[in-house]
């Protein structure tokens, strides 16, 4: 147990894994390798039809409210993966903390989207129930944002993910107004609308969205609705499911288990 703990960059001689040694030797050629690999990736996806067929998929996410510990790792990973501005006004995903008092009043907070956790609750007196709720774009089947976009710069792909074309968006912000979930923002650098894409560049390469990848407790479950044996299918089979603001009739594809009525 002691060895890995004392591991530091200076004691690399201790490592004798041959593949690792090989990589170390190759490290001079690393920039080249990087270029080659990236080029390979880009090629594979530029001609994406044979590799990835969007018509074969339909993505969704399950969120188990009772597993979320509010560590904010998902928020951080999302900003890393998608190059979201670090200022506390731009989030593709964020975590809210609900505290419902026995008097009935509810307070909600999400300091900096929960990216560095939550300040301690000073007094637990009077708390009836309290929990965390991760939020993100609901990837609606009937997305109001797509409906209102005047030019077709935001759209639903054939696999059901709602995306933004940042080279075509005119920045009218109507989509931001139309989203009932506050999931959209204007990226101050490109001055175009932005929001969660389910990490479209990852899922179309068979990887998980960054937030799901790093969720330590499995509170986020990602999968294909069309597949009967996906983690998501199992999630929706064994939980009572609720979506956010169902009266909006937006038909979200983010499914919450154990959601409280106070969550809006």
């Amino acid at each position: 147990m002691e060895k890995p703990l004392s591991d530091n960059p200076g004691s690399q001689e201790a490592i004798c894994d041959s593949r690792r040694d090989f990589l170390h030797t190759c490290s001079l050629a690393a920039p080249l390798l990087l270029l080659a690999l990236q080029a390979k990736l880009v090629r594979a996806f530029a001609a994406s039809e044979p590799v990835y067929n969007p018509r074969e998929h339909r993505y969704g996410m399950g969120i188990d409210v009772s597993r979320c510990i509010g560590c904010g790792r998902c928020v951080d990973a999302c900003k890393n993966e998608n190059d979201v501005p670090r200022e506390p006004f731009y989030f593709r995903t964020w975590v809210e903390r609900y505290v419902i008092n026995s008097g009935g009043d509810t307070s909600v907070d999400s300091p900096n989207g929960g990216i560095s956790g939550f300040p301690a609750i000073t007094s637990e007196k009077g708390i009836l129930r309290t929990f965390f709720v991760p939020k993100l774009c609901n990837q609606c089947d009937d997305p109001p944002c797509v409906q209102v976009c005047p030019v077709g710069a935001t759209f639903a792909t054939e696999d059901g993910v709602v995306l933004v074309d940042r080279d075509y968006c005119i920045g009218c912000r109507y989509c931001v107004q139309a989203c009932p979930y506050g999931a959209r923002f204007i990226d101050p650098r490109s001055r175009t609308a932005d929001k969660c894409t389910f990490c479209y560049h990852r899922i179309t390469r068979g990887l998980l969205p960054a937030c799901v990848e790093v969720c330590p407790t499995g509170a986020r479950v990602f999968g294909d609705i069309k597949q009967r044996s996906s983690p998501l299918a199992r999630f929706t089979r064994f939980h009572k499911i609720h979506t956010l603001k169902p009266h909006m009739n937006t038909k979200p594809k983010v499914y919450y288990a154990d959601l409280d009525e106070e969550v809006r």
């Binding site: 797509v146 209102v148 976009c149 005047p150 030019v151 077709g152 005119i170 920045g171 009218c172 175009t192």
Partner: peptide, 28 residues
């Protein structure tokens, strides 16, 4: 005022190119 408010006024002509018929704003 609409044009000045757009984050990308230089793309405003897209409303005439590819108007989204479902969008109230496209009909403007």
């Amino acid at each position: 005022p609409l044009l000045a408010h757009l984050a990308h006024p230089e793309r405003a002509f897209e409303i005439f190119l590819t108007p989204n018929v479902h969008s109230a704003m496209a009909m403007f």
